[in-house]
């Protein structure tokens, strides 16, 4: 149990997928203008990262490694991620068409989010078992959602501030993101992964 808690803290805070590993920066800057869209995107990404990491782990250990097909890893993982996004889209549409109307806009963007592929490759690199790998992917994506929500909250406040014209919009967003990354450096040393 202690190992699971350490993995969660390490993946979500210490080695935050956005602020420490610098993955998924496109959606990090793109959807953080409003906190609600950031939460919507964060939840969708959490779901896709966890589901695709489970699928990738199973393929890696039951197909790629036994048949010595490791050179197809990146290609296979991208296919699994695209399939996971498609599955999510279909299931949300099946669960409720109004839900799909509200949340469907975020799903295609996740296919091209490098954080999804990055987390799956980190699990392989770390030689993690199924449970630890799944918990790692879930915690990484929670860290991603946390970073999104934090930056969105800051940018909503920044929109009301008197920012110099030259820095308005994305420039001050990047400055804020870098300060957030510095703040997350305070977690280093708590747990490693």
């Amino acid at each position: 149990m202690q190992e699971i808690i350490l993995v969660i803290v390490g993946a979500a805070l210490v080695n935050n997928v956005v602020l420490a590993r610098f993955l998924g920066l496109c959606s990090f800057m793109g959807v953080t203008t409003k906190i609600d869209t950031a939460v919507g995107m964060g939840m969708a990404t959490t779901f896709v990262i966890t589901v695709s990491s489970m699928g990738n782990w199973a393929l890696e250990h039951y197909l790629l490694v036994p048949y010595e097909l490791e050179y197809l890893r990146t290609f296979t993982f991208i296919l699994v991620i695209a399939a996971a996004v498609q599955f999510t889209e279909m299931s949300v549409r099946k669960i409720s068409p109004p839900l799909f109307q509200m949340l469907g806009i975020y799903l295609p963007l996740i296919t091209t989010n490098c954080a999804v592929l990055g987390v799956a490759l980190l699990i392989v690199e770390g030689h993690q078992g199924f449970l630890i790998g799944t918990v790692f992917s879930f915690a990484s994506s929670i860290g991603f959602s946390l970073a999104l929500a934090l930056l969105a909250g800051l940018r909503e406040r920044l929109a009301l501030c008197d920012v110099p014209r030259l820095f308005m919009g994305p420039p001050v967003g990047f400055v804020t993101a870098s300060l957030l990354a510095l703040a997350f450096m305070g977690f280093s040393g708590m747990a490693s992964n």
Partner: peptide, 18 residues
């Protein structure tokens, strides 16, 4: 509503899956 919808569509299946 967007947060409620996200919780419904993603959080419930994630929790049961984990």
């Amino acid at each position: 509503t967007l947060v409620t919808a996200s919780m419904t569509a993603y959080a419930i299946p994630l929790v049961t899956m984990l």
